[in-house]
Simulated scan of single mutants.
Amino acid sequence: MRDTILKFEVSALAIRARTFIFSDPRSKALLPLIERTAPSNATIMITGETGTGKELVARYVHQQSGRADRPFVAVNCGAFSETLIESELFGHERGAFTGAHNAREGWFEAANGGTLFLDEVGDLPQSLQVKLLRVLQEREVVRLGARRPVSLDVRLIAATNVDLRAAVEEGKFREDLFYRLGVVTLPLLPLRERPADILPLARHFLGVYGERSGSPAIELSPDAEDLVFHYPWPGNIRELENVIQRATLIAPGKQIEPEHLGLPSRASREPQISARETEGLDGVRAMISKLIACGEPELLDRLIDLAVREAFAATGENQVRTAQALGVTRNVIRTYLKNAGLIGE
Rank of each mutant, 00 (worst) to 15 (best):
L133Y: 13
L164S: 06
L152N: 02
V142H: 06
A100D: 07
L136H: 04
K131E: 13
G113I: 04
E138Y: 05
A159T: 09
G114T: 10
L144S: 13
N161Q: 15
T98S: 11
K131M: 03
N102I: 10
G145S: 10
A111Y: 02
I157Y: 00
L144W: 10
L164Q: 09
V121F: 12
L128Q: 15
E140N: 06
R143I: 01
G99Y: 02
R143E: 01
L132E: 13
E140I: 00
G145Q: 12
R139D: 02
V162C: 13
V135S: 01
S151L: 13
V141L: 02
K131C: 10
R147A: 15
P125C: 14
A100H: 15
V135I: 00
A159H: 10
R134C: 05
A103V: 05
D119Y: 08
P149R: 08
V135H: 00
F97T: 06
L124A: 04
G95L: 04
L164N: 04
V135E: 01
P149D: 10
V154P: 00
R147Q: 14
D119G: 11
A159V: 07
G99V: 03
R165D: 12
A158G: 11
A100M: 10
T98K: 03
N102C: 12
E109I: 05
V121E: 11
D119W: 07
D123P: 01
L133G: 03
E140A: 08
R165M: 06
L118D: 02
L164K: 07
A96P: 09
R155P: 00
A158P: 06
G106T: 02
R155S: 02
